[in-house]
Design a protein around this nucleic acid. Structure first.
Length: 698
RNA sequence: GCGCCUGUAGCUCAGUGGAUAGAGCGGCGGAUUUCUAAUCCGCGGGUCGCUGGUUCGAUUCCAGCCAGGCGCGCCA
């Protein structure tokens, strides 16, 4: 607890430490308080940036913002600040809280700082491994609790590409927030009732002939999805026939007419009967519904485990769809809503509402609820369950309007937490060439499992063709899946959530350049170097500093309600991370690489790191705490994804210019090993926050 | 008609109220037969959609316009 309070970001974050030091120097020099200078209100005023050319300095501070409070020209301020900054940095370097300065210089209105390379390397690498906390490990608890709802599948069909983006975004966000010290509660809200489920059930009754996923040898969610697709096909046939009976051309019906005709088919009549008997609690119908949903959950379980998604709690629409009615009645009684002559209840919005909202139906004339009614109730239920400080809904941007309405209505109903709700919208995943968006109803969706399989197969082929992963004991299947997912996740997370993505299933995903596998590859090569160093006795195992390994955020939960209630064995692929590369036993060097990420802190060898590539790499490492903090603050994994690609490029340059095992001296070898380990640890932890595995060998 | 999102290199995308706007892919030319070449180095490539405003300074903020996407009272 005390540690949590005494820890400041500047203890591990170089940029923060620099900002604080410059602020102190500025206060001392100007004789004004930080508040007078506007630093309290705008701490980013002194945020260090990167000068355009490396020879100008490692970090630069723009003095434009100081011109006004100091009533001096920016270039003058920069010039006069050089001395005080040097003094302050010298003091802090002596205390070990900052690396020493090699040079401080004003270039125009910029105050540019260069560190002594060795001290920078020592400062950064020791904090990566042994900072409190080390890079990527969870920061001390903020005391805040954040609920993140994501995935939200339907139980009539398997997950598709749209869910993949949602799941990857949602699970990564959970990991990033947890690393920032937030208590994260990942939840799933399953749409397990309604017409679409009834359609699958009707189709199964007619054509299923008592088959099961086991008897059919089909994954449960696909098994059920097949019946949903079959229903759609048969429905179209029946509707076409009906249309022809009436002398209409089935191919040229407008949507409204088609729907009207579909409603008159025998299949839809059966579907309505099914829905009704479900609502009445008919035992046979409920039993079938349970059975089919359990099949689906078993299938989801596998896919979630494979993707690394887990939930602390599952909400089911079958249990929550009646909620919200009472809130609407309450609002009506309180005069917030109005009842129309037909009995329907509405939330009125003024003409010219600030969000452009129009009157919204809350209860139909027959008293049944609509989508938003149940969401009102479900959201209230979530706050009752967890009393969280924030609720984040990871849902496609198509529903932005729905969530604006939802939050406004909750606010109107007087819930103080309504303002703490946030819709994290993400763009569509579109197919190229006007193939349209990925809706399963159109039967053209890219299936999630197929996609993962295809990527794994592609990665496997590349590994085999390229002569990779040849060492004995490598689980090629697990490795290929880790790489395929690495490619997919980095591809999706690199792009801002708000943007639509064009996804070409044929082109799939690249493995070279700015890609996940490139990052994984760098990590694997570092592991390889360390393995060799250990094997050759260049460095001893007891020189490794161990601390709890940086596991990806596990979500504190279970894969699915099925395994939750059954308390079953962990999903088959849950151990993929540890199966994906190590060639040694648990106590061997590979295990040390996994669990240990750095040499002991403060080793003098780090001071030998003076090559420009080494320095550049250290500067890149130093950005990590700030980047993860920004990702958490913005609820956006993208900055972290691009950072890891940058770090990878920095490492690759170092790798090609600075031999490690063939360094000119043993001291230098150790120093470079130290740096490599710091990079590997940072890559590993960063990848973990994106839900990407870091195999030890590729 | 209204609301929200997007518009940056041939393509896919980063980025920022400030220094000469970056990366990957694609193209071209290179790298002591490697600590794993899924790598590295070099070259070429830009009216940051258009117009105006705020500012010492705008690709970034504001307004209008253009183009594309998504949505807008009984689907979820």
């Amino acid at each position: 607890m005390n540690d949590a309070h005494s820890l400041r970001p500047s203890d591990i974050d170089l940029h923060q430490a620099v900002r604080e030091a410059v602020a102190a120097a500025l206060v001392a020099w100007s004789g004004r308080s930080a508040d007078e200078l506007g630093l309290g209100a705008h701490p980013e005023l002194l945020a260090p940036g990167r000068p355009p050319r490396p020879e100008m300095g490692d970090l630069g501070i723009s003095c434009f913002g100081l011109a006004k409070p100091l009533r001096r020209a920016p270039a003058e301020i920069a010039g006069e600040l050089v001395g005080p900054v040097e003094t302050e940095f010298a003091r802090r370097a002596a205390a070990g809280t900052l690396p020493g300065l090699e040079r401080a210089a004003a270039i125009g209105p910029y105050l540019n700082l260069s560190f002594r390379a060795g001290e920078l390397a020592e400062w950064v690498t020791s904090r990566v491994a042994c900072g409190s906390p080390p890079y990527g490990a969870p920061l001390p608890p903020t005391g805040r609790r954040i609920l993140v709802e994501y995935s939200a599948p339907n139980t009539n069909k398997p997950l598709h590409l749209g869910h993949v983006r949602n799941n990857i975004l949602g699970s990564s966000l959970c990991a990033i927030l947890a690393a920032a010290g937030e208590e994260v509660i990942p939840v799933n809200l399953v749409n397990d009732r309604g017409v679409h489920i009834a359609k699958s059930m009707v189709a199964y009754r007619i054509w299923g002939q008592g088959a099961t996923p086991e008897s059919a040898g089909r994954k449960g969610d696909h098994f059920v999805g097949d019946f949903y697709v079959r229903f759609g096909r048969e429905l179209k046939a029946q509707a076409d026939a009906l249309a022809r009976e009436r002398g209409l051309d089935p191919e040229s019906l407008d949507e409204e007419t088609r729907r009207a005709i579909e409603e008159r088919t025998a299949l839809m009549a059966e579907t309505r009967r099914c829905l009704l008997s479900w609502e009445e609690g008919d035992a046979e119908t409920i039993a079938l519904w349970r059975r089919m949903n359990d099949w689906v959950y078993a299938g989801f379980d596998e896919t979630y485990a494979r993707l690394g998604c887990a939930f602390r709690k599952w909400y089911f629409e079958s249990e929550t769809y009646r909620l919200g009615k009472a809130l609407v009645e309450e609002g009506l009684a309180g005069g917030l809503f109005r009842r129309d002559p037909d009995g329907s209840i509405w939330a009125p919005f003024e003409e010219g509402d600030r969000d452009g909202l129009k009157d919204k139906l809350l209860l139909r004339s027959d008293g049944t609820s609509v989508y938003i009614t149940q969401d009102l109730g479900t959201t209230a239920l979530k706050f009752d369950d967890f009393a969280m400080d924030r609720a984040i809904f990871v849902v496609a941007s198509e529903q932005a309007h729905h969530f604006r309405l939802l939050f406004r209505l909750l606010e109107r109903l007087g819930f103080p937490w309504a303002r703490r709700c946030h819709h994290l919208a993400y763009g569509l995943v579109e197919l190229p060439h006007g193939m349209g968006k990925l809706k399963s109803r159109e039967g053209r969706a890219v299936d999630a499992d197929d996609l993962l399989d295809e990527l794994a197969a592609l990665a496997r082929r590349k590994a085999v063709d390229g002569g990779f992963a040849t060492s004995a004991g490598v689980d090629l299947d697990a490795l290929a899946d880790a790489i395929g997912q690495g490619a997919l996740k980095m591809y999706l997370l690199q792009v801002g959530a708000e943007k639509n993505i064009v996804f070409d299933p044929d082109a799939t995903i690249e493995f070279e350049g700015d890609t996940g596998p490139a990052v994984q590859y760098s990590h694997a090569r570092i592991c390889s170097i360390l393995r060799k160093a250990l094997a050759e006795g260049r460095v001893a195992l007891d020189e490794l500093q161990t601390f709890p390994p940086p596991e990806p955020f596990a979500g504190l939960g279970t894969g699915s309600p099925v395994s939750a209630s059954a308390g079953g064995p962990p999903p088959a692929r849950a151990a993929a991370a540890s199966a994906s590369g190590g060639t040694d036993g648990a106590a061997g060097p590979a295990e040390a690489i996994r669990s240990a990420a750095g040499l002991r802190p403060g080793r003098a060898e780090a001071r030998l790191l003076s090559d420009p590539h080494e320095k550049a790499l250290c500067l890149e490492l130093a950005r990590f705490p700030g980047v993860t903090a920004a990702a958490a603050a913005q609820l956006n994994p993208a900055p972290l994804a691009t950072y890891l690609l940058d770090l990878t490029k920095g490492y690759a340059r170092f790798y090609h210019h600075c031999p490690v095992l063939r360094a000119e001296s043993e001291e230098r070898l150790r120093a470079r090993l130290h740096l490599c380990l710091a990079v590997a640890a940072t890559l590993r932890r960063g990848l973990g926050l994106l839900g990407i595995e870091a195999p030890d060998a590729m």
